[in-house]
Write a protein that binds this DNA or RNA. Sequence first.
RNA 1: AAAGCAGGCAGAAUGGUCGCUCGUUCAAGGAUAUCUGGACGGGAGGAAAGUCCGAGCUCCACAGGACAGAGUGCUGGGUAACCCCCAGUCCCGGUGACGGGAAGGAAAGUGCCACAGAAAAUAGACCGCCCCUAAAGAUGGGUAAGGGUGAAACGGUGAGGUAAGAGCUCACCAGUCUUGAUGGUGACAUUGAGAGCUUGGUAAACCCCCACUCGGAGCAAGACCAAAUAGAGGAGCAUAAGUAGGGUUGUCCGCUCGUAGCUCCCGGGUAGGUUGCUUGAGGUGCUGGGUAACCAGUGCUUUAGAUGAAUGACCAUUGCCCUGAACAAUGUUUUAGGGAACAGAACUCGGCUUACGGUCUGCUUUAGCA
Length: 115
Amino acid sequence: MGNFRLRKRERVTKKTEFQIIFKNGARYITRNFIVIIYQNNQGLQRLGVSVSKKVGGAVKRNRVKRLLREFFRLNKGQLPEASDILFIAKPGSSQINYSTLSEEMLGFFQRLPVD
RNA sequence: AAAGCAGGCAGAAUGGUCGCUCGUUCAAGGAUAUCUGGACGGGAGGAAAGUCCGAGCUCCACAGGACAGAGUGCUGGGUAACCCCCAGUCCCGGUGACGGGAAGGAAAGUGCCACAGAAAAUAGACCGCCCCUAAAGAUGGGUAAGGGUGAAACGGUGAGGUAAGAGCUCACCAGUCUUGAUGGUGACAUUGAGAGCUUGGUAAACCCCCACUCGGAGCAAGACCAAAUAGAGGAGCAUAAGUAGGGUUGUCCGCUCGUAGCUCCCGGGUAGGUUGCUUGAGGUGCUGGGUAACCAGUGCUUUAGAUGAAUGACCAUUGCCCUGAACAAUGUUUUAGGGAACAGAACUCGGCUUACGGUCUGCUUUAGCA
């Protein structure tokens, strides 16, 4: 039985937490995104999203964030456990749709070495 | 039918699966705060945008005045207010529907007027015309009527006048100033009389003039709770010797301060949280007033509140548009593929501006048919 919910505590919301993840996390680059993974000590997976104004206007940025949230919510079983996962959208990612985003990210997480 | 002008309208719908956020309510644990789960209900726009004006609200400042600075600038009305809206006046553009106008002052000062042109503003003679020296040429003088340039050339037309000309004189016209009549709340319109003899444009050029208006910062405003941590202070317990330690010029004496640890209070306000936060100059129907903007009365209605920032993702069906194909053959048909703009609330309103795919209504001009 999959847990497809996404509660508030499964989100990274504090500026200081973002800074810690930026500083200490492991960075990976895919076609449209930069992924930063950082082991946390809270025992759950947490999502952080950063979409700058280079991506587009508010509508485009909202759409990218919503797609990333949707991917995180539906694929928590495929992602590293007990980690903060931060997605940074690169310019040009606003043209993506959900199926290509899902393929890109699933491919990335399957190739990710387990440490 | 084409081209155009003005205005209005809504910004695809329904269902399913998985979610987000707020509210109400139920259940379980717990003394509460709160946490978890279920049910029900609400959940982006016409511009939410740009942040360009005007307000409400909040805090700060504030005797009064002057200067500076900023803004506004035809008239009347509307409004909480406005650089907004409505109605009008005048000017400009368009065949027209209609559109546009920062539309006070250039006879106060300073500045500017490209190119062309002789000359772009108290000046000016390039060609031409006229006069003088016998004639021609040249020089000098007179002349703004004619040519040519320009966006703009120092009033226009006609007559008189003159060496040639010129408001030099006269008539009419235009303009300026003064002054009356009629209509209008008024901008102004229509019209009469007189003077004078004619004055370039630009104030969306100025730290120019005139009249009027104007404190500053903004919800990250402000209010409250409050870990952490710096520490003046207070109380209690423990400690007992005025000890350790500090100050008093380097040292000694003396003098003086002084009770270290623990707990609590006070205090401060960081991280974080709560509030401000959505009922408001609200929307809408009817009636009345008003050309209208809008106002008054009355009934009904309550419609997002996030904060690394919710309002979504995917699928199906139907409708719309485009393209191709088919036919019981040119259409309210069938079928395949594609498309659906601009754009995301962030304290709240009133406007303006900009972006954008449609659709409907009325009107104008042109062409054709009857």
